[in-house]
Write a protein that binds this DNA or RNA. Structure first.
Lengths: 132, 132
DNA sequence: TCATTGATCAACCTTCTGGTTGTTTAAGAC
DNA sequence: GTCTTAAACAACCAGAAGGTTGATCAATGA
């Protein structure tokens, strides 16, 4: 029972980890981030993507493989060309992961501020009562 | 002139790249992501953070160094303890980077959908006119 | 058929990363 | 003082990442 996605079992957790590992690792390189930036303006071939860089096309091809393995991009076929497309859904999964912790923490900061302010207010009234 | 932050010059670009490199690389590890998750519930010491893991405290200490170098966490001092705190601002910088490309691309998808739909509608009326 | 073009595969090298063990520093506690 | 505890530092090792060069595959066009 409960072999589905919501289960917090090991299998699913590992798959999630692998996804996040490969996606964040893929973004941890300036060349790959510039490729992402270029693809946000539309699909492009390996040659087109390699043009701005001072490295070989083979190296760029490897970078694209890293992005593809992370499912951040997909490759189609158009005759002998292989256009690369951005996959925004994967990017959204990353922001979702980050935000779940960022927002929790920011909410706590806001709560802490509220507590400090109400304490300060309480001390203020108390000070008036108990001073000298 | 124009030696400020907005300039798209080399210096600033490099600093940006370094920041994103170290931050995304820091998140590309399941141990470090679990540390982030733990810290979203409040500060913790190295010993507390190391407890759930089957690796040595030295290894966890190294992971925290990676997170600190990426400015995703900060360390304070409390007697002989060194509590680690999450830095939500850095997380926000990452979502900002991702979203600038994700949203552009998603907007293009929506525009493409609109074009396809209007084309389909145009073909529909044309088909009535030109059929046979 | 054969040459060209776009892109991948394969082997190799160097550097970085994640882990270990062992030692050292720093702050309290006795 | 000495003992204990929290944590960092240092040296080392195996494996992965990013880059290169050279060879190969696949699709097109003459």
């Amino acid at each position: 029972m409960a072999t589905d996605g919501e289960e917090v079992g090991n299998q699913v957790q590992v798959r999630d980890d692998d996804m996040l590992d490969s996606a964040f690792l893929a973004l941890a390189d300036p060349v790959r981030r510039r490729i992402i930036a270029r693809l946000s303006r539309g699909p492009a071939t390996v040659n087109e993507l390699a043009e701005p860089f001072a490295i070989t096309k083979q190296a760029v091809s490897k970078h694209i493989q890293v992005l593809e393995q992370a499912q951040l991009v997909t490759r189609t076929r158009d005759a002998q060309r292989r256009p690369v497309h951005l996959n925004p859904a994967r990017l959204e999964a990353l922001t979702a992961w980050i935000d779940q912790y960022r927002l929790v923490r920011e909410e706590q900061f806001r709560s802490l501020d509220a507590v400090l302010q109400s304490n300060a207010a309480a001390r203020g009234t108390q000070a008036k009562d108990s001073s000298s």
